[in-house]
């Protein structure tokens, strides 16, 4: 897992938190063997606690739903079967692909908007930019219920197609604050004012400066926002339940319908939960370092 790296994640974070100085093992930084043993015992204990639900998910998903008795529910399946996976896939398959159609455009569009906004707010500022930025940020914290009721009417009256297109639009709009924040912090700490000045002196306008000077060094910022928005859109349930349904909505809706059914088939539900989590888990495992970068964007004060 790449997240094992000790360097702080790129983007947003790095310049904020100064590179950790290697703490020299001075007297107090060394632990006694006993202390070390206690540390490991505790770490392992919590490891088991954290992994326990994952164990249950995996093990149960390979059981036959009808055979889950009260006894041996924690044990391995007596017969390993993929029947529950097949059942879950039947229920979730269409929405699984639909969710990619949702999350990928959202990730890309949001990132571009965020990059443009972040650039302006960090390096092409105008009077009152700080106030505007604060007003933008507020949009990130609102409980979406407070816009949901009219939102439903608005998206309908502007003739957005129901389901995925509507959700793409909505996630793009409400993703603007976070993406703007990430890029603003990123540019503010990694792009020296002098580069912009130099570009301006050369007579380059805003767009040319952005395209030729800024974008090429924005990759780390993009990775963070793309991962962030992809994960948010993939895991969203609130917008989905208000603006779509099992026929045209993302996988969270389909999963909730599968798992919330009467006398739920736990084996199929858990296989479904795994299917629904797979893409974000893959992103986490492959790009863990940047994933964490998104989570920590700007949250560490220098």
């Amino acid at each position: 897992m790449t997240s094992t790296t000790t360097t702080p994640p790129p983007a947003a974070l790095p310049a904020v938190a100064p590179k950790p100085r290697k703490a020299k093992p001075s007297g107090i930084n060394r632990r006694s063997p006993a202390g070390r043993a206690v540390t490991y015992v505790l770490l392992l204990f919590f490891l088991i606690v954290v992994l326990m639900p994952a164990y249950v998910l995996v093990v149960t998903s390979f059981k036959n739903g009808r055979d889950i008795g009260v006894n041996g529910q924690w044990g391995l399946p007596t017969v390993w079967t993929t029947i529950s996976w097949a059942k879950a896939w039947t229920a979730l398959g269409p929405s699984f692909f639909r969710t990619f159609e949702l999350a990928i455009p959202v990730a890309l569009i949001s990132s571009f908007l965020g990059a443009a906004n972040g650039f302006v707010l960090a390096r092409w500022r105008f009077p009152g930019a700080d106030v505007v930025f604060t007003l933008i940020l507020f949009g990130m914290f609102i409980p979406y219920q407070s816009v949901m009721i009219p939102l439903r009417e608005v998206v309908h009256s502007i003739h957005l197609l129901p389901g995925i297109p509507t959700l793409i639009f909505v996630h793009c709009v409400y993703g603007i604050p976070i993406c703007t924040l990430i890029f603003r912090n990123y540019y503010a700490t990694t792009v020296p004012v002098e580069i912009i000045e130099a570009s301006r002196v050369d007579g380059a306008g805003l767009l040319r400066t952005f395209a030729s000077v800024i974008l090429p060094i924005s990759i780390p910022g993009f990775v963070v926002t793309i991962i962030w928005q992809f994960t948010s859109a993939w895991n969203d349930y609130l917008f989905a339940i208000f603006l779509s349904n099992t026929n045209n909505g993302p996988i969270t809706i389909a999963l909730n319908a599968l798992a919330g059914a009467q006398s739920p088939d736990y084996a199929a539900s858990m296989a479904g939960a795994l299917i629904a989590s797979l893409p974000t888990l893959v992103v986490y495992v492959v790009l863990g370092r940047w994933f964490i970068g998104g989570l920590m964007a700007g949250s560490v004060k220098s």
């Binding site: 502007i158 389901g163 297109p165 793409i168």
Partner: peptide, 26 residues
């Protein structure tokens, strides 16, 4: 007014969110 403003906002975002592209299942 809200709808009009929203309409304006959408047209501004045209470059971005493709409102007709995503396949609808229904």
């Amino acid at each position: 007014a809200a709808v009009a403003a929203a309409g304006l906002a959408v047209s501004l975002l045209v470059a971005g969110c493709d409102t007709s592209g995503g396949a609808t299942a229904t």
